[in-house]
Amino acid sequence: MLIDWFTVGAQVVNFLILLVLLKIFLFDRIKQAMDQRENNIKERFDKAKEQEAKAKETRDTYEKKTQSLQDEWDARLKEADKEAKERRESLIKEAREEVDGLKNKWQNALEQEKASFFDRFKKQAARLIFDTVEKTLSHLADTRAQDQAVKKFLSRFEALEKEDLPKEVETQPRVSTGFELSESQQKSIQKTVSQKLPDLENIAFEVRPELVFGIAFAAGGKKMTWHAHDYVSALEKQINQAIESKDHEPQKQ
């Protein structure tokens, strides 16, 4: 017979013993170790998750800070840009004002220089014209320009209407000339003036070089002048116009 029932019973017992022993020494221990490890891994995983959350939180905080700094930086940059623009505009304005000031100053100086030049020019031109006329008349007509000027003054004075003459002469009348009058010329003038204005006392004569070729009579608040200033002024005007028109011409490269 292939089956021995005692062996069957013994094997059943052996199997049950083995079952208990393996349960104690193998399955329970292995399961326990695996559960323990699983718990450890779970704990680590939870810890890692927690750390991840913390890291995320920190990252968010730093991102916010970075954003804040960026905003601040942008604002400051904008402010600096605005300040720089304002400063630039201010400096440009100041520079323009300075340039304008310098330009005005320069123009004023130029105008003054010009005026001074023309004043000198007027005097010199008048003097030159007078000298030229004097020489010309002297050589060609055997006469003096100043004599002719005195003559012309006297004829004009004589031709004056009563209303053109001064009514009351409280101060001493004055005759100014650009040249030295001779005694006879002074007497002629005195005589002519006295005829027109009998109340007048002696006339005071003075030399004013700026009159050059002219004669001025001042009495009772009235002033009568006969001189070459108008001609010289016309000449000055023409020269001035000529200079200005040349200044405005575009410069040729």
């Binding site: 292939l2 089956i3 021995d4 029932w5 062996t7 069957v8 019973g9 013994a10 094997q11 059943v12 052996n14 199997f15 049950l16």
Partner: peptide, 12 residues
């Protein structure tokens, strides 16, 4: 390889 063992296991 013993029927007694396999029978014992089958009985279990």
């Amino acid at each position: 390889a013993s029927l007694s063992t396999t029978a014992a296991l089958a009985i279990c």
